[in-house]
Design a binder for these strands. Structure first.
Lengths: 205, 205
DNA sequence: CTGCGCACTTGACAAATGTCAAGACATACT
DNA sequence: AGTATGTCTTGACATTTGTCAAGTGCGCAG
């Protein structure tokens, strides 16, 4: 009995592991060269397999990309949860959040620019929109958990809504990322000070 | 006497007009398909010329793209200046700015997503960074003119710095654009209400 | 041991793409 | 008129890319 379903393997655990393995190679490559300059051969070259294997596990390039987008989500949506859980004062949460923000800006800069790349691609390709919008919501909720915890620890209430708060913070982070990748050394501290300043601002006026 | 300079024409006015003409076709095409899926032949097909003409006026694809980025700047940096100049009250400026923001979100959505595409490409390609950073500064100044005028008309002072204000507003606009292109009908009014709400917030606490 | 099915490789094909040389066409100058 | 020069087209090239068919090796069931 064949295990194929449509043109791609999806059933057994071995296949899922391979798909994840390829997704990781793809994310690594996409984060390095960007969506526009990454071919399936580049992705395979960054794995331990040959270029044909991609088409064995994925029907086409689009299926690989969308799978990667979904796979990406699992890695990034819990980034601040440890700090939210461990912080006992508003100040501790504020400092920890700003630190983590600056840390991931530097350490995961390739993954972040890939995310902005994919989100922008979704503006052109409707096929990417469902997944991208879902991830954006997940990230928004991640930020909202930080903010509502910060408000609770401060004994204040939030006057801003979740989408707006996320969008503003995201805009600040995207700007910091662009300048960081353009070799602007000051932007890390800029991001830290903006994050530190923004949290109190987002509470009641 | 030949007018060639290096591999491309740059001197006389006729050549500059052709370059602008091609840049317009390129921007139109790029706004439609995105950077990743636009070829020089697509661009030429959207003009009245054949595909070879691109290489007659531009040394290579990179030179065309960077020229387009620069050309783009001239079109967008004065979008709100008329409202800034004509508004006589803070409320008039606030409403006019929000209206213009929503109007351009819908009318110029292809150009906006192209801008976000190019800005993201700059995260991968250092060759684009100087132009992109310069345009970003120009846009930031455009927003700053609105905000400082709004503060003056309100008789209040701005407590936020220019980069942060621009980054936050840009994040809100980018989110609205993504949802607008994903056929979310409510996001225009969402953008309007956020813009209306944000202007007073950006003044003193 | 033998054959079968799965996982993967190899090689190939067609289409797309950046680049560019060669020529056609037009306009201006002598 | 004839020539030269600038402008644009045509066709071609090498390469890249997505796709896929055919084949190889390996483990396992019978």
């Amino acid at each position: 009995m064949t295990v194929k379903q449509g043109a791609t393997r999806t059933r057994d655990r071995k296949s899922l592991e391979r798909r994840d393995q390829l997704a990781e190679s793809a994310l690594k490559t996409l984060g390095e060269f960007g969506y526009a300059h990454t071919s399936l051969r580049d992705i395979a070259a960054n794995s331990e397999f040959s270029h044909g294997v991609v088409h064995y596990y994925f029907a086409d390039k689009t299926e690989l990309i969308t799978y990667c987008v979904r796979y990406y989500k699992a890695q990034c949506a819990t980034r601040y949860d440890a700090i939210v859980a461990s912080a006992t004062t508003a100040e501790e949460l504020r400092l920890g959040f700003a630190d983590k923000l600056c840390e991931t800006l530097v350490e995961d800069s390739s993954m972040h620019r890939l995310w902005y790349d994919m989100r922008t691609q979704a503006m052109f390709d409707p096929a990417l929109q469902p997944d991208v919008l879902m991830i954006d919501s997940t990230l928004e909720e991640m930020i909202w958990r930080v903010l509502s915890r910060y408000a609770a620890l401060s004994g204040q209430s939030l006057t801003i809504d979740s989408p707006t708060a996320y969008a503003m913070l995201d805009g600040v982070f995207e700007r910091a990322l662009l300048h960081h990748l353009a070799a602007d050394g000051e932007c890390v501290e800029w991001l830290r000070s903006r994050a530190l300043g923004l949290l109190p601002t987002l509470l009641g006026a």
